[in-house]
């Protein structure tokens, strides 16, 4: 188990006052809140922060944690000393909301797991089970064709000894054709079991697309950078373009420049109406690697009388 340096996580000194800790928490919480931050590890950072705050904001837990000493460094192998917390009395009830089940093993080894966020209320004998939420990464191809995918979810659960363990749950799901990033797939009855005759909860999967090597996505529309040769752009051409539905032919109009946007109607993510695929032209230069090619460029320079910088107001 790794030692966690809660002071470092919160960016405060070991002798920080409770007010400083509160301020640091509020500031970092706004920065790393998963609904606000787009950083990939925001969720993990936010959980870590919540855990650090849980300990440091509470005078009892903080004193007990401090007793472990300043010699441990974050990430160092850690085993709690056998009687480490004797003499500390945890009054309990000090755990605020948040997802306490997400706290690390390090936290659990010090303060235990047998707490629940307050205010959950008594469940009625036939209560509906809890709904579960998770995110899934799918490929763009999956939404284009519709697909059946096997996904693995990590579910915290409590074993017979009362320890929190992570259980893997493998599900086969149908990806509905045309689903977009940020939309949710609902699996009825796949959340927690209900109590008594209560219905089971539902499982909601939020869809995200894996970054695609060719396409960028905006809603239902796709964007593709298409390299074209200078003569194709200048003279016009019919070129082959990859789309999610297969290769299609696209007419490049004569006199096209870099950055020109051409639309392949209805070649985006399916739906009603389906999205479009926008092709952005990018003129690729043939390399001047040998004398023949260099001569050819020299000849173009002589014959074309071309100044690409006329608009910049500089003399040739």
């Amino acid at each position: 188990m790794e030692f966690k340096d809660y002071y470092k996580i919160m960016g405060v000194a070991r002798d920080a006052t409770q007010d400083e800790i509160k301020r640091a928490y509020r500031k970092l919480a706004r920065k790393y809140h998963p609904d606000v931050s787009k950083e990939a590890d925001a969720e993990a950072r936010f959980k870590e922060l919540g855990e650090a705050h849980e300990v440091l904001k509470d005078a009892e837990k903080r004193a007990a944690y401090d007793q472990l000493g300043a010699n441990y460094k974050g990430g160092q192998e850690f085993r709690p000393p056998p009687d480490w917390n004797t003499g500390f009395e945890f009054s309990g009830g000090g755990f605020t909301g948040g997802d306490a089940a997400d706290y690390s093993d390090f936290f659990a080894s010090l303060f235990g797991r047998d707490f629940r966020a307050g205010g959950a209320g008594r469940a009625s004998p036939h209560a509906k089970g809890e709904d579960h939420h998770a995110k899934v990464l799918i490929d763009l191809e999956d939404t284009y064709h519709g697909a059946t995918r096997t996904i693995t979810l990590r579910v915290p659960a409590v074993d017979v000894q009362g320890h929190v363990i992570t259980r893997e749950r493998v599900l086969n799901i149908t990806i509905p054709k045309g689903i977009r990033a940020g939309q949710h797939i609902r699996l009825s009855g796949q959340g927690s079991a209900g109590s008594g005759e209560g219905q089971a909860g539902d499982l909601y999967l939020e869809v995200e697309f894996r970054a695609h090597p060719l396409y960028r996505v905006d809603g239902r529309d796709l964007y593709l950078d298409l390299p074209v040769a200078p003569w194709e752009a200048a003279l016009g051409a019919i070129v082959k373009v990859p789309t999610l539905g297969g290769i299609v032919e696209l007419k490049i109009p004569e006199g096209s420049g870099s950055g020109r946007k051409l639309r392949l109607k209805g070649r985006g993510i399916p739906g009603d109406p389906p999205g479009d695929c926008y092709v952005i032209l990018a003129i690729a230069l043939p390399p001047a690697e040998n004398e023949a090619a260099k001569d050819f460029y020299r000849k173009m320079a002589q014959e074309l009388n071309f100044n690409p910088r006329t608009k910049l107001g500089v003399p040739e």
Partner: peptide, 29 residues
């Protein structure tokens, strides 16, 4: 780590395309 396999594909729907969420549905979710 325990693994629970359930390999029957589930019938799924896109929540956002289902425009019929009632107040009760939303409270539940």
């Amino acid at each position: 780590m325990n693994t629970e396999n359930d390999l029957t594909p589930f019938a799924t729907c896109i929540l956002e395309e289902q425009t019929q969420l009632t107040l009760a549905d939303l409270c539940r979710a």
